[in-house]
Design a binder for these strands. Structure first.
Length: 348
DNA sequence: AACCCGGGGTA
DNA sequence: TACCCAGGGTT
């Protein structure tokens, strides 16, 4: 793209964004902390999903000090249902680093801000440009789709090295006097106009600069090869109830899937596995009654949980289990919240 | 570079 | 179903 075209492109994009941008909660602030929170929540997560979480999160943790001092359980409870829970822990770790190392001021250079936990190339560029106006690239899925079409880039965006191509493109095109609106404009365009299927080219403010539009098949871009196969897993899940009616809740492993989140005991089914016996052995109890509660399917990105859920009354409990109301304080993944709901309904 | 990490919306 | 979403960390 020639220099004169680049200038017209960036002006058309910025003008369109500033006229047509959606009214979103994080667009009412330039507080780097709040921008940071929004960007982390928006990773792999849609705007409409994030909005209520963002508002509630900042009510609980309005400042970096508040978040830095928060209990992890409270933090995760605020994140409950949003997914990718390590984002929350990384955000808190990063905020603590800003408080302790940078005197409570979010760094304004890519080199420094990138050192913070949970701040990768995209989030670094987003916070720098939106909060501070620094002309740094912020390349996400939207930006790669938009620019692959505008510039007719056919590199496979599933390959890590391809992102460098788009970062270089943004470096060439970015409005150095209004990096915030330029970067947000690219993303807004991807969200509203330059969508994955059926892009609304007739409404596009930059279609006259768009190679894919002129060639007639913008929906063919970007090129993306990878595809993931979901693997099924089969579990028996137990709502265990002692003589007092208290329930067993346990914390998952600190690493891996749903790390440190809380759950009802679950045992993977297998050919030579009778899960009630395993349950009695693992928890040192005796099952006195057992009834079906529900059957649930829970879909993750890469796997599917098929869960048969049972309510069992048990004898021989030594520890203190929790009441139904206490259970609600524990951060749980959506799969377990569904079971909690089913159990609540079964009580009538 | 490959793999892992949630959950929900949409065509 | 399959794909996508304001990605980052680990290995």
């Amino acid at each position: 793209m020639h220099y004169a075209y680049a200038e017209q492109f960036r002006k058309a994009l910025v003008t369109w964004f500033e006229q047509e941008k959606r009214d979103l909660p994080w667009r009412h602030t330039k507080d780097p902390y709040k921008i940071w929170v929004s960007e982390v929540m928006l990773q792999q997560t849609r705007v409409d999903t994030v909005i209520p979480y963002y508002t509630r999160f900042l009510e609980h943790f309005p400042t970096m000090d508040a978040l830095a001092n928060a209990e992890e359980e409270l933090l995760l409870k605020q994140w409950e249902g949003l997914g990718y829970y390590s984002r929350a822990r990384n955000l808190q770790a990063g905020v603590r680093e800003v408080v302790e190392v940078y005197g409570g001021v979010v760094p304004n250079t890519r080199e420094e801000i990138s050192k913070l936990k949970g701040v990768g190339p995209y989030t670094a560029g987003a916070v720098l440009s939106i909060a501070y106006g620094v002309p740094e690239h912020a390349v996400d899925g939207n930006v790669m789709r938009v620019l692959s079409r505008v510039l007719n880039i056919h590199d496979d965006i599933a390959l890590p090295k391809t992102k460098k191509v788009f970062e270089a493109a943004v470096d060439m095109l970015i409005d150095r006097d209004n990096a915030s609106s330029f970067n947000q404009g690219l993303m807004e365009l991807g969200a509203l106009i330059c969508t994955p299927t059926s892009p609304k080219c007739l409404l596009c403010p930059v279609r006259e600069y768009c190679t894919a539009f002129h060639e007639g098949e913008p929906e063919k871009l970007p090129v993306k090869t990878k595809k993931v196969k979901t693997k099924p897993l089969y579990y028996d899940v137990y709502v265990m109830r002692d003589e007092a009616g208290n329930l067993k809740v346990e914390q998952r492993d600190a690493s891996g899937l749903l790390a440190s989140m809380w759950q009802f005991p679950m045992i993977e089914r297998g050919d030579d596995v009778f899960t009630p016996t395993l349950l009695e052995q693992q928890y040192d109890v005796t099952i006195t009654t057992k009834e079906n509660l529900t059957t649930l399917k829970h879909i993750f990105s890469h796997l599917v949980w098929h869960m048969d859920v049972f309510v069992v009354d048990v004898a021989g409990v030594q520890q203190h289990w929790v009441t139904f109301e206490e259970m609600k304080k524990y951060p749980m993944p959506v799969s377990m919240l569904k079971i909690l709901k089913a159990y609540e309904n079964s009580l009538g």
